[in-house]
Design a protein around this nucleic acid. Sequence first.
DNA 1: CCCGGATCCTGCTGGC
DNA 2: TGCCAGCAGGATCCGG
Length: 300
Amino acid sequence: MPELPEVEVVRRGLDAHVVGRTVTDVEVLHPRPVRRHVLGPLDFAGRLAGARVDAAVRRGKYLWLQLDTGDALSAHLGMSGQMLVQRPDAPAERHLRVRLDLDDGQQLRFVDQRMFGGLAVVGLVPTPDGLPAGTAAGGPSAPLLPPEVAHVGRDPLDPHLDLDRLVDRVRARRTGVKRALLDQTLTSGVGNIYADEALWRSRLHHARPTDTLPRPAVRRLVADVAAVMGEALAQGGTSFDALYVNVNGASGYFDRSLAAYGQAGAPCPRCGTAITREAFMNRSAYRCPRCQPVPRNARW
DNA sequence: CCCGGATCCTGCTGGC
DNA sequence: TGCCAGCAGGATCCGG
């Protein structure tokens, strides 16, 4: 479940079903998803066994479980990762990669078809700004995060996002605005779906040069990203198929509300012009050719 | 340092 | 029916 709203749906599920539990046993069924745990699968399992989960925290698309050992179980879902809470007698999923047994008899399962995602047990480092690291339940999270998240920018739903600094950094780039949105070091959690939806709301073409965007336009764009993500979250996220589900295996339904993404040939909800799809960065960009015309000096 | 393209995986779909 | 190219919501590495 790739983008911020879908990861936040998972985080909330982990909050409800896994926080407070102790890990009693671990099985790594495929080595690739723990490749970022440099000391190997055995060490990975050893550091988890006996640990209690104290919090579930998220920044952008990164997710981690704080453990009472001082370490954290760091997770990224990549393109196809799922975190499922299951009863032990539920049949193993086809792409089950890692299984954690919990002290309440349930299992936390990491299922990932394409294995771009993964898990690692890591030590936490201080946030550079000393502020809470990200989104967690029950008040602010600790000012600590996994090292691989240290370079990731605060996301649009983070109350500690420094909007003025973000606007300056976007405008300092010499690239197209969609590339900037997808750069997780500026702000995080934005992927192809929410980038296209926010650009449609802001009536911006994806190749609009960032350095010619007026400050208010960048501010509006960030506000549009936050708004579309908030609406998606309220509907349980976006999912086109069974690959993207919450910890109980259920799909969100924000796909019914998409104005541009995946809507090639369908009428623009604002002006009725047919939405187009074009190749962009080895994937797709969807836009309304009338509301979002190709700019002069386009920067792809 | 910044930017853009290639690459890592597996499975499904659509066209020939 | 069978095969294969193309595509999929992401991050990282590498060369310029």
